[in-house]
Amino acid sequence: TGPGPQDRLQHAQSWRDMSAAVKNLPQRQREAFMLRVLEGLDVAETARAMGCSEGSVKTHLSRAMHHLRDQLEEWR
């Protein structure tokens, strides 16, 4: 037993919406989000990968999270 067709459809639509929202982020915000959230790098590792300060990583990630929350409000 597993998720039914309705649950699988909803899951696929959620991923599609999330993917589109991430693609719409400005490049630096998308980089910070992908490295921190999806790749699991810490702030220092992300800063090195992006070639910026740790403060910039935090700012880019914060802005990305706010943008994604706004774009995906209907998930709540």
Rank of each mutant, 00 (worst) to 15 (best):
Q10G: 00
L41M: 14
R48G: 11
A64K: 01
S56E: 08
L38F: 13
L25G: 00
S19R: 14
Q6W: 10
H11T: 15
W15V: 08
W75G: 03
R63K: 14
K58G: 13
S56G: 07
R36Y: 07
R76G: 07
E45P: 09
F33Y: 11
R36F: 09
E74F: 05
A21L: 03
V43P: 02
A12L: 01
H11P: 13
E31K: 12
P26A: 03
A12K: 01
M18N: 05
R48M: 11
M18A: 09
K23P: 11
S19C: 12
L35F: 08
R28I: 02
P5K: 15
G55T: 00
R30Q: 08
A44K: 12
S62A: 12
L35M: 10
R16Y: 11
K23L: 14
R28V: 02
N24Q: 04
T59R: 10
D17R: 06
L61K: 05
E45A: 09
A20C: 09
L35D: 05
D70N: 10
S62L: 11
A12D: 03
R76T: 05
Q10D: 05
Q29A: 01
A44H: 11
R16N: 11
A32H: 02
G2I: 15
L61A: 05
P26E: 07
Q71M: 07
K58N: 13
H67G: 02
W75E: 00
A12V: 02
Q27H: 12
L25K: 00
R48I: 14
V43Y: 08
A20K: 10
V57D: 04
Q6D: 09
L9D: 10
A20G: 12
Q71L: 06
E54L: 06
R63S: 12
S56N: 05
T1N: 15
K58W: 14
A64M: 00
E73L: 04
A49K: 06
H66L: 15
E73V: 04
E54F: 06
L72I: 01
A49C: 02
E73Q: 02
R76S: 08
L25Q: 05
R30M: 05
G4N: 07
R36M: 09
R69W: 13
R63T: 07
A49T: 04
M50V: 01
L35Q: 03
V22H: 08
H11M: 12
H60I: 09
H60W: 13
E54T: 10
Q13V: 06
G51W: 03
A32K: 03
Q27K: 13
E45Y: 08
C52V: 04
Q10C: 08
Q10F: 02
L61G: 01
A32Q: 00
E45K: 07
G40I: 13
Q13P: 06
P26V: 08
E73G: 00
T1I: 15
R30D: 03
L25V: 00
P26I: 02
V22P: 00
G2D: 15
H60Q: 12
H66P: 14
Q27M: 10
D42C: 07
L72A: 01
N24G: 08
Q71R: 09
G4S: 05
R76V: 03
